[in-house]
């Protein structure tokens, strides 16, 4: 039973990381109908920023809590500015072009960022400093739930609640929902759609940066390629839940994380991806628009 619970929690925290990234995919898709393939790279850049800042601050000898907070802020700001810039450079000029053009532009941007980090940094794995200590109060259950898992779950939950409040109650949130539902009409009520799109990229990138920081300190090493793999998984999770749906992205991520964790634990870690993608295929056969996705019907 302990083993089951252990797998459950590690699956949950894995799913939480996927969710932080998947939200960026699903929000951007909801607003402009584009799969932002460069989104995984934003997460990777978040991890690299965290690495640089955390290493410098550790050398400077700051207290751990200060390091974590400052690293988090730096990662969020840096990744968000990347997200903002990517949209302006790679997608905005193609706003009225066929969808395929923007998609190709996204893939190009993804390759560019990977190779840019490869050249600017290194192709080797970099050791990431341990930011999250083993809490003393977690001692009795440390063999089933790690302190890092706990931090990941709490951070993700707080981020999700923050996002939900933002979308439901704030002015920019309402503007985002309106733009996602009917862009022309959003313009006609006076919403600056360009600003809404920028905000979406900034918010999605910030979430991915938090994911990057968490995963880097969890796994303990990073390289330029982690964004691609995580991006594909998070994208799968978003599709699984129903692309465009925010609760769907979270649900899809948790389902994917748990599946992978149990597959690894009970079968073999070699089959982790096989199970993950079989699940995707199965769900899409029975629910083509994903778990919580809306079927594309429109009242005329």
């Amino acid at each position: 039973m302990d083993y089951f619970i252990e797998l459950f929690f590690s699956g949950l925290s894995r799913g939480a990381i996927y969710a932080l990234i998947a939200l960026g995919y699903t929000m951007v898709y909801g607003i402009i109908g584009l799969i932002n393939f460069a989104h995984g790279e934003i997460y990777m850049i978040g991890a690299f920023t965290s690495f640089t800042v955390a290493t410098i601050l550790t050398i400077l000898g700051l207290p751990l809590l200060a390091i974590i907070v400052l690293t988090g802020i730096a990662a969020v700001v840096w990744s968000a500015s990347y997200g903002y810039t990517i949209e302006k450079i790679a997608y905005k000029p193609l706003r009225h072009a066929p969808r395929l053009s923007a998609l190709i532009s996204a893939i190009g941007m993804s390759m560019f960022l990977q190779n840019y980090v490869l050249l600017a940094q290194t192709s080797d794995f970099l050791p990431f400093p341990t930011l999250i200590p083993d809490f003393a109060f977690m001692e009795p259950i440390a063999h089933i739930v790690g302190s890092t898992d706990l931090v990941i779950l709490i951070t993700t939950t707080v981020s999700m609640i923050f996002l939900m409040v933002l979308i439901k109650y704030t002015r920019i949130g309402k503007a985002m929902r309106a733009t996602a539902q009917d862009r022309t009409m959003a313009m006609l009520v006076g919403i600056n759609v360009n600003r809404v799109i920028s905000a979406t990229f900034v918010i999605g990138s910030s979430m991915a940066a938090i994911g990057g920081l968490l995963i880097a300190s969890h796994i303990g090493q990073i390289n330029f390629y982690i964004g691609f793999l995580a991006g594909i998984k998070a994208f799968t999770a978003a599709v699984l839940g129903g692309i465009g749906s925010i609760p769907g992205a979270v649900l899809g991520s948790v389902v994917l994380g748990l599946t992978e964790s149990f597959a690894t634990g009970y079968v073999s870690s070699d089959y982790e991806d096989v199970f993950a993608f079989s699940l995707l295929v199965l769900i899409l056969i029975f629910k083509p628009s994903g778990l919580l996705g809306k079927a594309d019907t429109q009242k005329v």
């Binding site: 309402k174 309106a178 009917d182």
Partner: peptide
């Protein structure tokens, strides 16, 4: 606009609020 363009998943009240954006 032609075809009304109501925000389908916003309530009537929220649609009106959007008008006063």
């Amino acid at each position: 606009p032609e075809g009304r363009h109501i925000f389908p998943q916003l309530t009537v009240r929220e649609n009106l609020d959007m008008g006063a954006f």
